[in-house]
Design a protein around this nucleic acid. Structure first.
Lengths: 158, 158
DNA sequence: TGAAGTGGGACTATTTTAGTCCTAGTTAGT
DNA sequence: ACTAACTAGGACTAAAATAGTCCCACTTCA
């Protein structure tokens, strides 16, 4: 379904929570704040720390704090920290493609990958936690799912 | 990893194969042509047929043919046929969001979803099977994976 | 020294995804 | 009329990715 992993989703939530201030928050505190299991949040924070998106402070009274200003953190980085490289296609250097000629088919994926990555890279954590999104053109009210019915009906009639 | 399902990948391959001509091809023929298991390809063709991306011809000498001109078939439709709605986020109308205030965080996802969908919608099957992609700006030679190292290093230094 | 933390990884459970197979229905050819 | 070559649809199984939990070592504060 071309969906983000839950970890990536949690990751952004955790980052958004941390972005409220520059203070140190323990994993359990963040977990309580987000209403999630402490062990899960702990894992997520560890992953974020490995990529320096958050900085850890060890010992009692320790915890995590944002690694840098929310303006300088992109969604792409968070996704990368949680899920690894952002690529829509599988075939990645290991030449899983059976036929060279066929692989010309896949050239398009590169362009699409690029567009996705750019979108993810442009959006900063700072923009994300704003009450209103900077892009004001028509929001879909209730759902985050993109309405594809237009495409479907176009297909049926043709 | 924000990756496409294999089915979606196969789906585009099958469609690309069919797009070579307007003729009727049996599932087993397509499977042989792509070097894949007949049962798998059969399943994929059935899924494509349900969305009218291919038309089925029953009986002996039957098979499948492209539903319409490759120019009028978008990658988005193929993905939809194989994987269902294209949405990067999970929270989709069923209000899985624990906190309303937190959900402002997710407004950004709508914009990102939109961008992705537009990219997928713009790219037609016809463009995909062209030997060269219409978008000529720098291709990454070997991989389809997007190089995220630039992002990473930016993160480390900050 | 103990309580409160993180670091890192092993482990298990769950869910998705992928792949196979079976039965029924349709059509062409003989 | 019969048979071979097909698709339709779904049940079923296998495999893999994802999510979540837990444990033990180390660090710091009081």
């Amino acid at each position: 379904m071309l969906r983000l992993s839950k970890f990536a989703d949690y990751g952004t939530q955790v980052m958004a929570y941390m972005a409220k201030d520059g203070a140190v928050h323990s994993a359990s505190e963040v977990a309580a704040g987000l209403g999630m299991a402490a062990s899960t949040i702990s894992k997520i924070l560890k992953m974020l720390a490995r990529e320096n998106l958050v900085e850890s402070v060890m010992g009692a009274k320790g915890g995590y704090m944002l690694g840098r200003h929310p303006k300088n953190i992109s969604i792409a980085e968070i996704i990368y920290a949680m899920d690894g490289p952002i690529s829509i296609t599988e075939c990645s250097g290991t030449s899983a493609c059976t036929r060279e000629s066929l692989c010309s088919t896949r050239g398009s994926w590169q362009g699409i990958n690029r567009i996705i990555q750019e979108a993810l890279e442009k959006e900063s954590l700072a923009e994300m936690i704003k009450p209103r999104h900077h892009d004001t053109r028509n929001h879909i009210a209730e759902h985050h799912i993109v309405d594809i019915s237009a495409i479907r009906s176009r297909g049926k009639s043709a």
